[in-house]
Structures are given as C-alpha cells and as structure tokens.
C-alpha cells in the first residue's frame, strides 16, 4: 500500500488547491486595488480598509454577529453539556429517540430549519405580541448549536471510567463536588471543542439568521445585501480580514495541539526510562 504517489497524484492535489484558493487569492488581491475595478490592477491602496472601519452598518452588523455568536455558543454549551450527562444516563429507548431528534437540525437543510423557526416565531409573536428580532435570532442560533455540542461531549462521556464518579463520592465528595472536580475536567476537551464549533457555526450562518432575524442584521446578512446591489471592494476588505483571522486562529490551534502531543510523548518517554 505504501506506494507513494507519482507525478500525477501530486499534480491532481495541486490542481485541487489551485481551484480552492485561486478565487480567495483574487479576492484578497483586489481588496488593495486603488480603483473599484475587480479585474484591472491600478495600484496599491488601503482606502477600502479605512472606509470599512467608518462604515457604521458593517460595524454594527459585526457587533451583532459577535454578540450573538458568543451568547449562543455559551448558552448552547451549558445546556448541551448538562443534556449530554442526562442523555448518557438514560435507558436505551429514550436515549435513541432523543438522539434522533438531536440529529434533525444537523441533517435538515438550513433553509428548512430557518423557515420552520420563522413560522413558529411569527405564530407565537402574533399570540404573545412580539416581533422577530435579536431574541428570536439568539434562540435560533442556540437551537442549531446545541446538537453539535452534544455530538462532541457525548463521546467523551462514553470514554469516561464510570467508577471514577463513584470513587469520588466514596471518598467523601458530594454529588456536586464529584461532578465539578471529576467529571467536568475529564470531558473538558469535548466541551471546549463543542463551544468552538458552536461559535464558528454561529459566525458563519446566513440562511437561518436570514429567516429569523427580523430587522436585526448580522455580518452575513450585511454581506448578502452588499452583493445584491452595488459591488464595492469593501466586501473584499471584509473577506481579507476574516480570512486572516481564521488563518491565525487555525495556526494557533494547530501549533498548540502539536505542542501538547510533543509534551505527551515526552512524558511517555520519561515514564519508560
């Protein structure tokens, strides 16, 4: 099996990366273009970035996106973590039923999730007298985040040694102490993973927000509005900033992981000697 790829294999991989990255690179290059042209290079400028930071509608959309994403990720992580522990302790039947419901927002097309929540909010809004806005947007985000938190916490619980919890209680811990000092630290990687995933999903979401936000605007919705009417290199500037942020985050996460792996290996090595 360990036959290395020949020229054609490497070439295919290269073509794929070219296909994936060429549009993004073009986008980034033209954020520095001095005229509005998206095809002819006329000179370097940072004007679009300056304009961007004076564009109040983009800034307020960015603020809404960050606020919603942080709140939704935190709330979803708390609800989801407790729920995972509850689900883990359930009998097989109810557990399987709940996991099926849990998978609905994951499998369903975004537009269905968005539209169905839209119907619910309009329906309840008429009865209870509220309108679509920040609150409904937050609820929608929490709703599509929770399943992913559960999918990343539950496997960690399965790996957990069941006796640990009882051992802690036998040694005099209360239920609460045992929970916070034994269970939580053990499943922490899963919780953190779920939190990060929920946050990125929220930042990235457009479709579900579009149907549930009412007059509130997230960054994705602002970008959508911008692509629909006149086109401005400010969009390119936004994308460049977002791309750089994501790239930086990914590099940090990967370097951290690599370091942790190395440290773990060292520890193992020192045990052996």
């Amino acid at each position: 099996m360990k036959k290395k790829n020949g020229f054609w294999g490497r070439f295919l991989t290269f073509l794929l990366f070219f296909f994936l990255y060429a549009p993004i690179i073009v986008l980034i290059i033209f954020s520095f273009n001095s005229t509005k042209s998206r095809t002819v290079w006329t000179g370097f400028t940072l004007d679009w970035y300056v304009k961007l930071f004076h564009n109040s509608s983009i800034l307020s959309a960015l603020y809404t996106t960050l606020l919603i994403s942080v709140l939704a990720a935190l709330i979803a992580t708390i609800i989801g973590t407790f729920a995972s522990i509850g689900i883990f302790n359930m009998k097989k039947r109810p557990r399987e039923l709940i996991m099926q419901v849990n998978n609905i927002p994951v499998i369903n097309a975004d537009i269905i999730t968005g539209v169905s929540l839209c119907i619910l909010f309009v329906f309840l809004g008429k009865k209870l007298g509220f309108e679509l806005g920040f609150g409904t947007l937050l609820i929608a985000h929490i709703t599509f985040n929770i399943p992913y938190v559960i999918l990343s916490v539950l496997p960690k619980l399965r790996q957990l040694d069941k006796n640990l919890f009882e051992a802690a209680q036998d040694l005099g811990c209360t239920w609460m102490q045992a929970f916070f000092k034994v269970i939580i630290p053990q499943i922490k990687p899963g919780i953190v993973n779920g939190l990060l995933m929920a946050f990125t999903l929220s930042v990235d979401d457009f479709v579900i927000s579009y149907f549930t936000a009412g007059s509130v605007e997230t960054l994705s919705m602002r970008i959508y509005a911008m692509t629909k009417k006149r086109i401005s290199p400010e969009i390119n500037a936004v994308s460049t900033i977002l791309f750089a942020t994501v790239l930086l985050l990914l590099i940090i996460i990967n370097v951290r992981e690599a370091r942790q792996e190395k440290a773990a290996e060292k520890r193992r090595a020192s045990f052996k000697s």
Partner: peptide
C-alpha cells in the same frame, strides 16, 4: 487543513469571489 480552511470563510464571500471571476 487546507481543504477545510475555505469552509471557514463565509459562504457568501466564497461565492462573491466567483462572481468577480
């Protein structure tokens, strides 16, 4: 990682990039 990276860029922006091409 390189294959996943574009998925972290907003869907609309990726599509917008193709519009200008």
């Amino acid at each position: 990682m390189l294959i996943m990276l574009p998925m972290w860029i907003n869907f609309l922006l990726r599509t917008y990039a193709w519009m200008s091409i």
